[in-house]
Nucleic acid binder design. Structure first.
Lengths: 345, 345
DNA sequence: TCAAGATGATAATACGAATTATCATCTTGA
DNA sequence: TCAAGATGATAATTCGTATTATCATCTTGA
């Protein structure tokens, strides 16, 4: 069998073409500006040797000497490839892959980070996060301490999803939840809904807080009465409806089946008696025969732009490193004019 | 802002604790066997400094000093993250990621390889395939020239899916198609089918050839007459049925809808008049309400074992580097006893 | 003919960690 | 008292690439 394969190095190329290692490096990197000059024939000899041997610079050594190796780490707190068919990460990765190819860089899945207490540890002993030029963070929740350390150590990174600042501004590409939610609230208001409710905790991950914030602001502006239902449970839902609520805004779209089931049990027809709005796409597999109104998170585009922001960062380009992308509104079939007072208390 | 803060190195630790860099390294790696000795108090001072500064070894430098990165390249000719929900690659990646985590290595998606003419070029100019310790090949078809070059250059690699040898044995983890297909043929024979047909070309990717080979061998052994239908088209299918074929073995499970549509149009009931068997899982999104009999390709396990084989290779361990994993039989609802002669010519 | 400039290439060094060879210093034992 | 061994730590080198400073050699022009 093949023994421990020795890599073809610049030294080999140098030997073959009868020049020095430095010359090889110079030719390779086309560093022929400034004070350095290499005769065309010599260059050709070096290039030939490179072609013949199929030499490729060892990115590790390069990284050590140089600064960057065009490897982007992809870090997630959960496995990147969950079994669920309607995968949360998938569209992001699609966008990342697409842009990585365009930019000629590789993606390093940081799978070796040890999992402790159900979450991957970003800075565990022997963390390989430094192998890459930096990293892209995926996932709804990101440890604040990790964020601070990334900022503190000056590791370039971009979060996919808005993050609050952590010891410095956090570069991110997020979805503009406040605007998307506001648009839905306005639609509801225009359809005559006078009392609406937000179903969810509205806290924890930034995206939840953003939804609730957008909801409140828009409702206030539209002159609509609004409340919040923290838990998807019959009692609070009953109470809300009894209180005159005619439209429910679901923080977690995956809750839609449970809510429709509850409505069905109460004899409430959707959307005739009650409108339903989902604030985003389902993040876990969900089977609904209902076409819920809401909006679509531009996940793929977020993935793409994350890499753009990343390169802007390490190249020091002048760009907005905190981007919110617009969501696409989805009409659906569950947001209808508010019922006329007839059935209401 | 904080400028690009310099990373804490062993030199810093050495300075702080008043020892040499070598001593730091020795303490860090517990290389206190053999001829080297460090006084306990000195060790403690070094460890304290490490703790205070939060020092973490730079994996890049480490890799330069050692030999391997523990980075495994993942190469595919098509995008790794296609849009389709029922993703062909997904289960493989799931297994790879799972095992990568277990083995403490990272996966590098070789997304920098340029796509030309719809396929990624493995050895394009500036190929970064050597970034990793080696690579895992995913996909139904692999360019033979690329395989030969991998073998020739001694780049450790493992193919997920059996490959014919190419200038040397090709390490692979594949599915045992011949056995799986044979089992299905035997089932059909036991159910009284006397004439069966293989629908597909039976050539191209190794997996297709394997299916056909298994089919032929098993049919011959079971004393069943058999034929092959190269194209999923009405004429050859009609001819087969007219010739007394009572069970169709679909090379490409995704063809099932087309075939059932054809059967429906001819008034043939599945499985009463005609049995249908799919040789594997659908590789492209398919909507069937039919539970087709067949077998399941152990994709996830293939991914897992691919990494095992990979490490066996680079560590020179004694293991079988060409593995065929058994498929799981799936009963389904489309393989029934052969119709009695009544309706037959 | 000789200094100034142009030309082409290289030696030396840095990057951060691992490892080997080597070197002081201190104990022993006879 | 002095060589042999034990002890503790370090200098030097390696890995492969990038970069800077330096060095020959060759042209020129006056």
């Amino acid at each position: 069998m093949t023994g421990p394969r020795r890599r073809v190095t610049q030294r080999d190329i140098a030997r073959i073409s009868g020049v020095s290692q430095a010359t090889v490096s110079l030719v390779l990197n086309n560093r022929l500006d400034g004070g350095v000059r290499i005769a065309p024939e010599t260059q050709q000899r070096v290039l030939d040797a490179i072609r013949e041997t199929g030499y490729v610079a060892d990115p590790v050594a390069r990284r050590l000497a140089d600064q960057y190796n065009r490897i982007i780490g992809v870090f997630t707190y959960e496995p990147v490839f969950p079994s669920g068919a309607r995968d949360f990460f998938h569209p992001f990765l699609l966008g990342l892959e697409e842009q990585a190819e365009r930019l000629g860089c590789d993606l390093l899945l940081l799978t070796s980070a040890p999992v402790e207490g159900g979450r991957r540890r970003m800075f565990a002993d022997g963390s390989r996060i430094r192998l890459a030029d930096g990293c892209v963070l995926l996932g709804r929740e990101v440890d604040r301490g990790d964020l601070e350390r990334l900022v503190g150590e000056g590791i370039p990174f971009v979060s996919v999803g808005r993050r609050d600042d952590a010891g410095g501004p956090v570069p991110y590409v997020g979805a503009d939840y406040p605007a998307a939610v506001a648009a839905l609230v306005e639609r509801a208001a225009a359809l005559g809904h006078k009392r609406i409710a937000y179903v969810g905790r509205g806290e924890g991950p930034e995206s939840y807080a953003d939804r609730l914030r957008g909801f409140r602001a828009a409702a206030a502006k539209a002159g609509v009465e609004y409340g919040r239902i923290a838990a998807v449970a019959p009692e609070p839902l009953d109470a809300a409806v009894a209180g005159g609520v005619t439209a429910l805004f679901l923080e977690e779209p995956a809750d839609a089946p449970a809510v429709t089931a509850w409505a069905g049990a109460r004899g409430l027809r959707v959307p005739d008696d009650l409108s339903l709005v989902a604030l985003g796409d389902p993040t876990r597999p969900v089977s609904i025969d209902l076409d819920v109104a809401g909006f679509t998170i531009p996940r793929r585009e977020m993935g793409r732009q994350a890499l753009d922001v990343f390169f802007a960062l390490i190249e020091g380009a002048e760009t907005d490193v905190q981007r919110l992308l617009p969501c696409e509104q989805h009409d659906g079939a569950t947001l209808a004019p508010a019922p006329t007072g007839r059935n209401r208390s």
